[in-house]
């Protein structure tokens, strides 16, 4: 059980690093998905600890996966809209006050 928490902690740290340091919008999105997966791992693991027959943790993991999919759909739509307007997906160079 501790092992699961260690792994999800490590993955969460990696995801955080990605979110903080990447500037490309698509890699940012990938980092966020890594964060969500780390959380889902915990949900599934804790589902086994308390009342496994109720499946609460697994239901939450499914909700998490659904929301991650929606987030990817909307996030990528935003990225594409931004790309069409600014010609870049580098979040550091998106600037409404350009000349």
């Amino acid at each position: 059980m501790t092992l699961v928490l260690v792994f999800s902690g490590l993955l969460f740290a990696i995801g955080t690093y990605g979110v903080l340091t990447r500037r490309n919008a698509i890699t940012l999105l990938i980092s966020v998905e890594i964060l969500m997966n780390a959380a889902n791992l915990n949900f599934v693991a804790f589902s086994r600890l308390w009342e496994p027959e109720l499946m609460t943790g697994q239901v939450f993991a499914l909700v998490g996966i659904s929301i991650a999919a929606c987030e990817a759909a909307v996030g990528l739509a935003l990225i594409l809209a931004v790309f069409r307007r600014f010609g870049t997906t580098d979040v550091g160079r998106i600037d409404f006050l350009r000349g």
Binding site: L62, A69, C70, F83
Partner: peptide
């Protein structure tokens, strides 16, 4: 090179329905 958006519309509706079927 950047390609037209029709493909993305379909991918979008696809992912939503995929989640639905899976549930």
């Amino acid at each position: 090179r950047p390609f037209h958006m029709a493909y993305y519309n379909f991918a979008l509706v696809f992912i939503v329905f995929e989640v639905e079927t899976v549930l």
